[in-house]
């Protein structure tokens, strides 16, 4: 992976991290309605995968979707405005944190129903095949979704029809408070790919370069008409499932161990070791990212709420 690409990847991951920290801060100030599911700790996955995608490629996202939006190129200010329920948000305040979409960059939307995005991604893949373009779909979902029927139905259909979809399982080991070993006997969800006759691979989801390179292969495979793949990214969410969930169901030692594997610190170390960036360069990037996030947050805070009667609009096209 070339130097410029790695630095870009780092910047994107930092954008996601600082954005999420800002969301958490605003949530604490009671500015964010409803609930939030933060992507902190999983940044390498969205950034590593989406760095391989073109603007006209598609992604399908989940309730933990802010990172996917940012990685695919959605605007930070409109994303933040949507999270705050403002009129200037991507969905004019109709969607909120769990239902953001930006069709202008191929972000086909987050669905808050676990596993529901999988067949939708298959459908976008079918659309690509029928229209005869060389686009690709990346479909993000968690370990919880791997136990839904839609996982089986959607991946099987994509496999049978050889559709250009890359299924990305973000395995953060917990579906809400339920740990993986309680609900499946296998350790590697990637093994399930065998059942559909497609390639499946497990990768360290906290290693951005490893994710990038694994996704690169799968995306090329899909773009060249060779069908779908399943990539399992092993990761961990630094925060609880949602809001102020203290995540006490996770052993303290486990949390500490994973915090040491922070994907951003990980990549930062590699950049410094390789001499791609010096401390001054790092600080410069951090300042720039901080600045755009502050601006995005201010834009969202200053934006008006939608007029109440807009609730009745756009039920039908």
């Amino acid at each position: 992976m070339e130097k410029g690409k790695i630095i870009e990847l780092y910047r994107k991951m930092l954008e996601i991290r600082l954005f999420e920290e800002k969301v958490f801060e605003l949530y604490g100030q009671n500015i964010v309605p409803g609930t939030i599911h933060l992507y902190i700790g999983e940044e390498a996955i969205a950034a590593g995968v989406c760095s391989n995608l073109r603007k006209d490629d598609y992604i399908v996202s989940t309730h933990r979707g802010h990172g996917h939006c940012i990685a695919k190129g959605a605007r930070l200010d409109m994303t933040m405005a949507e999270i705050l329920g403002k009129k200037t948000g991507y969905c004019r305040g109709k969607g909120g944190s769990m239902h953001i979409a930006d069709f202008s960059v191929g972000m086909l939307g987050a669905t808050a129903v676990v596993g529901a995005g999988i067949p939708i991604a298959t459908g976008a893949g079918l659309s690509i095949k029928l229209r005869g373009t060389d686009q690709v779909v990346a479909c993000f979902f968690g370990d919880g979704a791997a136990n839904q029927g839609t996982f089986h139905e959607g991946i099987n259909l994509a496999a049978v029809w050889k559709l250009p979809v890359v299924f990305i399982c973000e395995n953060n080991l917990y579906a809400m408070g339920t740990c993986q070993s309680q609900v499946m006997l296998i350790k590697d969800i990637a093994e399930r790919a065998t059942a559909y006759g497609i390639p499946g691979v497990s990768v360290n989801g906290n290693d951005a370069i490893a994710v990038y390179e694994t996704a690169e292969k799968a995306i090329k495979h899909a773009r060249h008409g060779n069908g779908p793949s399943l990539i399992e990214c092993k990761t961990y969410r630094h925060k609880g499932h949602s809001r102020f969930d203290p995540a006490t169901y996770r052993p303290k030692e486990e949390v500490e161990e994973w915090l040491k594997k922070d994907p951003i610190q990980n990549l930062k170390r590699q950049l410094l070791e390789k001499g791609y960036l010096l401390n001054a360069g790092m600080a410069q990037i951090e300042r720039e990212v901080n600045d755009i996030i502050e601006k995005a947050a201010q834009f969202a805070i200053d934006s008006p709420y939608p007029p109440p009667e807009e609730a009745l609009e756009n039920v039908y096209a």
Binding site: P119, L126, G154
Partner: peptide
Amino acid sequence: DERVRDTPISESAIIGTAVGAAITGMKP
């Protein structure tokens, strides 16, 4: 067979796939 597609017995995937195709330019 490309435009008249037999599917597996997977109703959720039939409709989900149709939704994905519908939001990306097709009329399933």
